[in-house]
């Protein structure tokens, strides 16, 4: 195992972490500001990927596809906030889980109804296809590098939005005391719709970016949703900074665990059994990480609430 291979795996871990951050940011904002558990967040990721695949397929332009993913997911998010989610804020978490789980089923079967059961085609744009040579002899796909850059830019934009703008001040105020900012004349209903649409757009962007290197199919969002929940629990619910650090931790743990645990087992076992045992352990590595963080800090790394 050479140094450059390890470095390449770290890049892979970063890339998957940054995509997770786009998912987790919306989830943690929605939970932090509105106190809502949104299981349908994975469906918005799927909506983004399908919008991108459909529009890129029609126009041949990946950029238009991305724009469609952002718009489509934000629209779907705003729509379900107005029609369904709005009625759930005052209810307890179990009702929210039930209703948003129903939304998953509706979105999945609705997507199948519109696009059919077969996976859609979405490929990386020609300008970013193929690998680029990095220092130390690393060959790394250009598209994955682009994903890392886009993810970092969006993360920076999000920190700016939350920390430096009027909307961000309202969002943070809403997180702390929603009655008080309502009393100060902020239209809380509209604020909620905006936050929800923003979270949905981020999920849709992640779906479209990842859809180009994965399979655009019904049900693609749910595995990512589970990881995103792990991320926000590790990072501390409601914290964007926590979501960022948590996502990188989960991405790196998952990727490096998958590669190095089987290698570790090979020192003491025969190869076939070692890869099986190592892979099985790698599957639970992020949950072990989550448990360890919760023992150390019960509210997560940057969680404020008890």
């Amino acid at each position: 195992m050479t140094f450059s291979l390890i470095l390449e795996q770290v890049l892979n871990g970063l890339q998957s972490g940054i995509m997770l951050f786009l998912m987790a940011a919306g989830l943690t904002l929605i939970f932090g500001v509105m106190g809502l558990i949104n299981l349908a967040h994975g469906s918005l990721y799927m909506v983004g990927a399908f919008c991108a695949a459909a529009v890129a397929g029609l126009t041949g332009s990946f950029v238009l596809g991305l724009a469609a993913a952002l718009a489509g997911a934000a629209l779907a998010g705003a729509l379900i906030e107005l029609v369904v989610i709005r009625r759930l804020y005052a209810r307890d978490h179990l009702d929210q889980v039930l209703a948003t789980f129903a939304l998953i089923l509706i979105f999945s079967e609705g997507t199948r109804w519109v696009f059919g059961s077969f996976p859609l085609y979405l490929d990386v744009p020609d300008a970013l296809s193929g690998p680029v040579a990095l220092p130390l002899g690393i060959q790394y796909p250009a598209y994955r590098l682009a994903i890392i850059v886009v993810g970092l830019v969006v993360a920076a934009g999000l920190f700016w939005l939350i920390g430096r703008t009027r909307l961000g001040i309202r969002i943070r105020a809403g997180e702390n005391d929603r009655e008080m900012i309502a009393a100060l004349g902020v239209d809380i209903g509209r604020l909620y719709t905006i936050v929800f649409a923003l979270g949905a757009a981020l999920a849709g962007l992640a779906g479209a970016l990842v859809g180009a290197i994965q399979s655009v199919q019904v049900g693609m969002g749910e595995p990512v949703l589970i990881l995103a929940f792990v991320v926000i629990v590790i990072g501390g619910i409601g914290s964007i900074k926590g979501a960022f650090i948590g996502a990188l931790l989960v991405g790196l743990t998952d990727t490096l665990g998958r590669i190095f645990l089987p290698e570790l087992f090979k020192l003491v076992m025969e190869p076939s059994a070692a890869t099986q045992a190592g892979s099985a352990l790698a599957q639970i590595a992020i949950y072990v990480l989550m448990a360890a963080v919760l023992v150390w800090r019960p509210t997560g790394l940057f969680g404020a609430r008890a």
């Binding site: 892979n12 871990g13 796909p141 890869t275 190592g278 892979s279």
Partner: peptide, 13 residues
């Protein structure tokens, strides 16, 4: 000889 996770979607590693 490598075993991946069932349902895994990223194979960069």
């Amino acid at each position: 000889e490598v075993y991946t996770q069932l349902g895994q979607t990223d194979y960069a590693a």
